[in-house]
Amino acid sequence: MKKILTVTLGLLLCVCIAAPLFGQTYDAAKFKSSKPQSQWKIALVPKDATNAWFVRMEQGVKRYAADTKINVFQKGPPKTDAAMQAQVIEDMIAQGVDAICVVPVDIAALEPVLGQALSKGIVVIAHEGSSLENILFDIEAFSNEGLGQALMQVLAKSMGEKGSYTTMVGNVTNASHNEWADAAVAYQKTKYPNMALLAAEPRVEIMDNLDTAYQRAKELFKKYPTLKGILGTSSLSTPGTARAIDELGLKGKAFVTSVGMPNENKPYLKSGTVQAVMLWDSAEAGYAMLAAAVAVLKGEKIANGINLKAKGWESMQFAPGSKKVLLGKSWVNITKDNVDSFGF
């Protein structure tokens, strides 16, 4: 009898522990806040507090605070590190915030802590984390497929639609980066038959470090002399690779594009080593995440066409077949002609 009880309790415990790991659907309507708006506290947790991309995002957070007078703030780990990011989120839960907006470093590492937040009634909104389970909504500037295709269009144009190329991601565990790269490769296979993915090294990892991007690019061009293009995802891939292209003397023979910040890429866009990089404005993304969190706290229904009040984020649509992932239309090609117009 005692044995049966022990086993039953043990199983029950396992179920309780494992429950947050399985796909759950949360009812956003239950997250409506009963507190007055002036007492709300909303944290935005980026991947890395120091990366220029997220410094820019914080400007959107500050603008949102000024526009709405709601207590919103950004707090990120000092470097791109999954464990450190989970720690920051735990701290936010302990501080009793009403909503957490997060740009995840590593999906798997965050699921438990985000599940914990939701179970305490904290609204969780993600960005660049469409495969997260323990969130209410994930908002994307565009579909991962759309960006992957757009990146491939830029690279294909630079390469004259022919030759060998490979893909470069921040980390092989980074969900969005890999989805963009996958979509780009799929698009190339249907649209550009004269281009070919480098079979021996189809995906290279730069650990989100500029110097590593430079070193990996140099290695790639040495090992594979026929390699003509690198399709990057991390914003550090283009400046790192472009520096390698310039130094190796491959300007005009090898090409690179990725998501990228105007200032970091300006010298290479102006000199012609790089033709274009892609961007959505992280400040607008930060603003839109907070708007989504506030909409849930106010008890507004999140439906197709919802306006998150940021540029390119005015009419969000659910991704096909999803009730969690909302897609916007917010991207822009940065070229030598418009690189000076961003002010960052």
Partner: peptide, 14 residues
């Protein structure tokens, strides 16, 4: 650290 691609070790194994 700077020769894994030259050796031909796939990124996932580096």
């Amino acid at each position: 650290a700077n020769s894994l691609i030259l050796i031909g070790i796939p990124t996932y194994w580096s």
